[in-house]
Design a protein around this nucleic acid. Structure first.
Lengths: 239, 239
DNA sequence: CGCCATATGTGTGTTTGCGCACCGATGACT
DNA sequence: AGTCATCGGTGCGCAAACACACATATGGCG
């Protein structure tokens, strides 16, 4: 068992951490440590989903990709969740593009194992149901957010959500990348990111982003950030 | 059992119809016939979900409502599905606004019964999982559709989806209502609906809409319509 | 050190949809 | 038959974001 995190008493992934210790111990042999590289593609539309990924300090983004020049993030998955939830719902081919938005560590589990372990209504099953609902809520909120809120507010929200999941003040990120997530052009991101930088809320250069003033970003961001975070924390709290 | 559709051999709702006959017979005593009125509110954010609704020829829309003047449809539920899927996922309060977009018949089931009947991994459970995934796909596609496609194409898509679920060429529908679904102003709907009417694709007057040329609408609509329909039909076929 | 792919900054003109204001038409109800 | 709330049509100014076209900066690599 070369890559199994056998010595780790408590998982870094909060979804796994919400499992009863006994359940987690049972899953442990099936978990494999992996490192996710920036911009790595996890699933493409039509792909067979071979593994479910539980990020530790990495981030996986789910994208609805219209074509090469029009994509939009529909879900952000960090240590509060899992990528590959379709498998749990009985569908083993991906409908969305899943790619690594923040490099870092994750553990993964074979789809067959996920199916086996969630094929009866127990702690794991219930947890995945709750997580599905949480991601669902995130999706519908972001849908409205993308429609109604200014790019300013949305960028701030997105940066906050990213920082929450990656856990550090600095991370790799280009304007081009952000534009793909927010479904706008790079020039648009340039404009509002420039404003944030001049306001000393963030600082960036050649793909290196730093959050300087979280409180300031929270003020600029729309309510969506708070609501999504509250819902996410709630489901984990109630396990 | 006053309102039970006891004599109905096969259900009009395709989700229920996809159940093995034996399972359906077992659920039958728990199903209650209801008539849903146009614009009736099924759930509001924060509401406890008391029933799950299986439309026959009615339509329930799930809305993300920013405030009174900014709402957006995030899911459309007709005879292929069920409103109240949150209950299945273990959450009994609604996060979205669910309202009747097309008046008609439905059957409903108490939330407690839904929980009981889906609390083990059987046909019903698996079917609801697949439906959850289908609605999920619809949500993410529409999210991108709302972002990238013209109002023209989106209105055509929405009308087609509505007609598929309501089953007739004519139905009640105002521009104001459409604007709430599509997340745009009434004036915007007026503009493109006027074009469709002049092109003899639809005809409408004072809340009465008629589809005159389905094929024409399909040409104008974006691909999203076809993709969503294919995915929806697929999951029911594979039941 | 110099090159170059990558990342960022900026300008111009156009389109889409918003906000507001208002008019006209009509169906339902008294 | 008259009233009135509802529904539909339209014009105008504005803001956001688009498409396209460049200019500039810089880290990494030979």
């Amino acid at each position: 068992m070369p890559n199994a995190p056998a010595l780790r008493a408590r998982p870094a992934n909060r979804l796994l951490a919400a499992l009863p210790p006994k359940e987690y111990q049972r899953l442990l042999p099936e978990l494999e440590d992996v490192t996710l590289a920036f911009a790595q593609v996890i699933y493409e539309p039509g792909d067979t989903i071979r593994h479910a990924y539980f990020p530790n300090d990495s981030i996986v983004s789910l994208l609805a990709a219209e074509d090469y020049h029009a994509s939009l993030e529909v879900g952000m998955i960090g240590n509060e969740g899992m990528a590959g939830i379709s498998v749990f719902m009985g569908v083993s081919t991906s409908r969305t593009l899943a790619l690594v938005q923040g490099a870092g560590a994750a553990v993964r589990m074979k789809s067959a194992v996920l199916r086996r372990e969630s094929d009866h209504v127990g702690s794991f099953h219930r947890l995945l149901h709750r997580y599905t609902h949480s991601l669902w809520t995130q999706m519908s909120l972001c849908s409205a957010c993308n429609r109604f809120h200014t790019l300013n507010a949305r960028l701030a929200r997105w940066l906050l959500m990213t920082q929450d999941r990656i856990g550090t003040d600095e991370f790799r990120l280009t304007q081009e990348f952000m534009s793909n997530m927010l479904g706008v052009r790079r020039e648009g991101v340039n404009k509002v990111a420039g404003e944030l930088q001049r306001g000393k809320l963030i600082s960036y250069s050649r793909g290196h982003m730093a959050i300087l003033n979280r409180a300031g970003l929270e003020r600029i961001s729309c309510e969506c950030y708070r609501i999504i975070k509250a819902d996410s924390d709630l489901f984990l709290g109630k396990g």
